[in-house]
Simulated scan of single mutants.
Amino acid sequence: MEQSRYQEIALEIAHSIVMSEYQEGERIHGRSTLAGRFNVSPETIRRAIAILQNAGVVMVNQGIGITVTSKAQAEKFLRAFDQKTEVHVFLSELNEYMEKRRQLDLKIEGHLNKILLYTDRMMSRWMDVAEVEVGKDSVAAGQTLTQLKIRERTGLTVVAVVRKGIEQFSPNSGFVIESGDVLLVVGAEQGREKLQEIL
């Protein structure tokens, strides 16, 4: 399946860590440098780093930058992607066999569609990062993440908050939301719809 550019960049950075181009504890180039290296926007780099942060591969601290935290987590991250690829290759082969057995076409196709939907839904929960902005008159402004109960009410994980262009990764439960904040969240589409209602 075709991957979003920020997902491809996250995989490339994880691969560099596994190949020891970056060591644990080493600082990776800043987002501006990475944006130039991959010829993408800072927003794209921000999403890629958010994926790796959520997977425990890197850590982002204000004033320090992006630091490699775990080579083992980078390997785990790549293995999960490889497994997804193997599943889709296998399903593609089954689809060819299905054409040769027309009598069983409908039954086989139905099962394949269920597997595809399940696989995509499962993998998208940690691969897909969305941005949700807090409106000017939002009732969420002035409330903490604990008070909003975002995870309990939506199933989403807030991996970062962008305020006036500055990212706050892994905000704690006491973090106070303000109007104009942009929340970077990981989770299912249904959860994002619920979050829009809350904000």
Rank of each mutant, 00 (worst) to 15 (best):
E2D: 07
S4L: 15
R5V: 09
Y6W: 02
A10F: 05
E12G: 04
A14Y: 02
S16Y: 06
S16F: 10
G25H: 11
E26K: 11
R27D: 13
S32V: 15
A35R: 08
F38D: 09
V40M: 06
P42N: 03
E43W: 14
T44R: 09
I45H: 08
L52M: 01
N54I: 03
A55K: 08
A55T: 09
A55F: 02
G56T: 10
G56D: 08
G56I: 09
V60L: 06
N61A: 15
G63D: 06
I64P: 07
G65R: 04
I66E: 03
V68I: 09
V68D: 10
T69H: 09
A72L: 12
A74I: 05
A74Q: 03
A74P: 02
A74K: 01
K76V: 11
L78K: 05
R79K: 15
R79C: 10
F81L: 06
D82W: 06
K84H: 02
K84L: 06
T85I: 13
E86Y: 02
V87N: 05
F90R: 00
L91S: 04
S92A: 11
Y97N: 10
R102L: 08
Q103D: 15
Q103K: 10
L104M: 04
L104A: 06
L104Q: 01
D105T: 15
L106H: 15
L106D: 12
K107D: 05
I108C: 00
I108Y: 00
E109W: 02
L112T: 01
L117H: 08
L117Y: 07
Y118N: 09
M122Q: 13
M123L: 12
V129N: 05
A130G: 04
A130N: 09
V132K: 05
V132M: 04
V132W: 00
E133H: 06
V134N: 01
D137F: 14
D137A: 14
S138L: 02
A140Q: 02
A140T: 08
A140E: 03
G142Q: 11
G142E: 10
T144H: 06
L145F: 05
L148H: 12
I150P: 10
R153W: 01
G155M: 01
A160T: 09
A160H: 10
A160V: 12
R163L: 00
I166V: 15
I166C: 01
F169H: 10
F169I: 09
N172P: 04
V176S: 04
V176F: 00
V182K: 07
L184V: 07
Q190G: 15
R192T: 11
R192F: 08
E197T: 14
